[in-house]
Structures are given as C-alpha cells and as structure tokens.
Nucleic acid binder design. Sequence first.
DNA 1: CGTCTTTTTGAATACTGTCAATTTAAGTGG
DNA 2: CCACTTAAATTGACAGTATTCAAAAAGACG
Lengths: 262, 262
Amino acid sequence: MSTTTLERPDLSIRIITIDAVRPAPAPQPFRPNCSACHLRELCLPGGMTGGDVERLDALLFSRRRVRAGQVVYREGDRFESMYAVRSGTVKTSLMLADGREQVSGFYMAGELMGLDALAEGAHASTATALEDAEVCSIPYVHLSEAAVASTGMQHLVVRLMSREIVREQGLMLLLGGMNAEERLSAFLLDQSRRLDARGYSPSEFHLRMSRAEIGSYLGVTLETVSRTFSAFHRQGLIMVNQRHVRIIDMAGLAGACVLRTH
Amino acid sequence: MSTTTLERPDLSIRIITIDAVRPAPAPQPFRPNCSACHLRELCLPGGMTGGDVERLDALLFSRRRVRAGQVVYREGDRFESMYAVRSGTVKTSLMLADGREQVSGFYMAGELMGLDALAEGAHASTATALEDAEVCSIPYVHLSEAAVASTGMQHLVVRLMSREIVREQGLMLLLGGMNAEERLSAFLLDQSRRLDARGYSPSEFHLRMSRAEIGSYLGVTLETVSRTFSAFHRQGLIMVNQRHVRIIDMAGLAGACVLRTH
DNA sequence: CGTCTTTTTGAATACTGTCAATTTAAGTGG
DNA sequence: CCACTTAAATTGACAGTATTCAAAAAGACG
C-alpha cells in the first residue's frame, strides 16, 4: 500500500515545564474568567446575557493542567465539580465487571464533562486526558448557589444536561442500528463537525484516540475499526495514515452513514 | 414445543367509557396532588421534604388518559410539559431517516418522560402508550418558577436529568458490548426489578411491548429476540408464552448477563 | 369464521469477532 | 545516533453470531 503523506498542521508541541520534575503541585492559582475566554461562545456562557456571564466569573473556577494519560476525575469519586475542557482532548470511560474499559465519550475544547455525577453524588465515569490538556473546574456548590439567584443560571444547567441526554440518544441510535461502516462514518463526520466549530479544518485532522478507544466507543473491535478505515481509503472516501485523516469525499462519507435496513 | 400455561394476574381490564364515542375532549379537569398519590415514593416527590411536596401540589398538574397506541407527545412538538406515568406503560421512540422507528425507552408508573426536550425546546422523541395509560402533565414553566423559590425543587430537576443520563449510559454499555442473550437477560432483569419496585411479582409478568419493539430497543432483530426467548426456555431459565414471562432461574438469567469478553 | 398481525422457526448469507502474524511507529538506553 | 524494546496499527484466515428471506403457526379482532 502506498504511503499517504499528509500535512500535520495540528501536531501539538509538548512543553516540558519545571512541573515535570517537581512533585505534583496543588492546583494552580489560575482564576480564569469566562467573559475573557476565547471559548466563550462554545462553552458554558454560550447564549448567556452579560449579567449571567459576570455571575459565572464570580464562581471562582480554577484551571488545571492535565498531562496525557492523567485522570481528571475517577469513577466513584465524590462529586464536587463539573469540568469544562479548555484545550486538548479528554475521554470518559466506565470500567466493566470483567475489567475491560468502555469508552463513553470524547470531549473537546468548550465541552462539559461530569454531568452524570449529579444523580448519585459520585462520578459515574472516569475522565482521562488523551493528550496534554487544560480543564476548568466548576465547583458545583457555587454553581448551585448562583442558580438560586438567577433563572438564567438554572436554565443553563438544565439545558446542558438535556443536551447530554440528546447526545447519548444519538449514540444509542448508532450502537443500536448501524453496521461498522455507518458507525465509523458517523464518528468521523461528528469529529469533523466539532473540529470545524472550533476553527480547525473539517476535512483534515489528527485523531487523538487509539483504534481500541474508537472501537470501544463505537461498539466494535479495534480490528474492525482498522479494516473499515482501510475500506474507506480503498473507496476513495478518505486518506488515512495512522491517526491522520483527510476526508476526500465528505458527501460520500455521509452517504455511508445512512442507516441500514436492519 | 409444549404450550406453557401461565397464570395472568396482571391482565389489564379495558374500561370502555363514554369518551370512546365522543370526540376527544379537552384535558380532563383532574387536579391530582402529589402528596396524596400512591406513587409518591417512586415518582417526582421521592425523597422530598414536606414543604417541597406542597410546592409540587401547587404546580397544577393535570392528569390525562391515553389509550393504547395514542401519542402523549410527538418528536418536534414544542416543549411545554414533562410527563410522569401514573398507570400503564409508555414507550419513547425516534423516527429514523429511512422511516424506521427506533425505540429509546419504556416507562412505567412513577417514571418521568420528556427530559430530552429541554435542550432544544422541542421534544426529541415521541411517547406512545403501549396500553391504556394515565399520565400526569407537569407544565415546565410552573416547575421552573417553583425552582426559583426552592433549592429543593432545583435539585429535583437536576437529579432526575442526571438519572436519565445514567440510564442511557447503561443502555449504551448494553448496546456496545453485549450479545443477544446478554441483552435480553439484561432487559428481563430490568423489567423484573422495576415491576418489583412497584409491588408486582418480579418473577412473573406480562410484557406490554412486541418482539419488534424489544428488538429495536435492544438493537437486534425481532427474530433474534424470539429465538433468544426460546433459547432461555430450553435452558430452563424462563417459561415464556407470547408476552407472558415467568422467570424460573433468576440467578441463571443474571449469569447470562455477564459481559462477554468481546 | 375469516383476515390480519404477531410470533415462531428454518435455511442460507453476510458481517463481525477471534486468533495470529506482520508492519510501522514510538520510546529507551547504550 | 543507532540498536533494542515496546506499543499501535494493519492484514489474513477462520469461526461464530446475527441478519435476511421465507414459511408456518398462533392469536387478536371485527
């Protein structure tokens, strides 16, 4: 097979800081505020009025660096904060009875994690950074207090949770009624759309997750993921080299996503 | 195959009322109150303090009868109310691009539907009664106003939504990593547990949904559902005759539910 | 009682998982 | 910088499971 050459405009540069040799320090004293954040439109404050954004700023978020492979929160941890991804990519996963890992989501800049924790007061999944990342920690007690004062804040929380419910419904459809090609094309189109919304190229990107993680998320084996990538390549829909993907035929890929007759 | 005879303690009696021949009347003037409802513990008020239950009573719920096959709300309808099932069974489903129906949930007495509507202000699924049923309609504007006054009410909504997220996560695990036998045993055990919580027999019950609906929900074909029922019968785990199920070996059925190695 | 729907069952096919080997990339230490 | 080790991805062969197509049986309903 010919070696596919792709530009790599999105390779992250690992910044080796002093932190790497010091023992892990306490959360950094960063006090980011939402009104100045470049993710304003995508993240929590999206669609909020000025007054409510100021209320968000008053919640004393803290920002935390997470290195590739490190955990943001762990399944079973007492619920204290929700987390917004500021940079990098994070996966959430559940540990199954037999010790295997089931990936339940991938989160990009501006997306919120940890909404499944409110039911039981403990996190229902584990969040792990797939690359060096930054997350904003949103203390729930503060958010909850703010919601008492402002209906805008109440609706914010409710809308975010409802959005998560709808997201999971989409995944259920995918897992319930699609074959391997449909699953992978839906996955690639979803990635493309979300990267596009963040100002990256929708047609050429670098996947931050392994074949095994994609497979777990999509409910197929890593071998099937790999084979399906190759099949798309042969069909001229994409160019793929390891984790680098270039979508050649966006419409064709969308066509592969039509639900099968079942 | 031998005909399995089962008692049917749960056959519903169709009450034919005058309503059946009159044109559909406006929602009945029932003003049920939560504090007197026998579903108090299972439903919205579960775990609430006296004051908050009184606030629920003040929300002016209305109760509505729904006949088998009728729709409670439809995908795309503007979101005005959430619904609690008071009696009967309701399914929620989504219409796929190719016209097929994908079942996303089954709801019993005390369970809440319509939480997926808050994100977009429109219902994301259609709720259809599987048998004659009664639902309580909970106007969201009233609930929202009550939440302004009471943190207890705020937490109620948030907890309910989080619970729905966790429910869907469980379904994702099922769809993502289980084979047909594991799916059906998980389904039967879930039905058993929920019927048990409502005071019905956990070991013998009447399914209100068709094989096709079960299959859609579990992500397999109706033929596979039927075959798997027969297989469980042969294995001595259950007795099954059409929609009547008696669980013979609860532990054995739970054993069939262990996640496969994948 | 006949019609329609639902359920069951069979046979053949297609798809995906499993096992195994190879290739490629990435990381480590001399 | 290179050899070595480890991990990730690809590919092939085969087996197993679920789907598809088809037909028959059992209920439901007017």
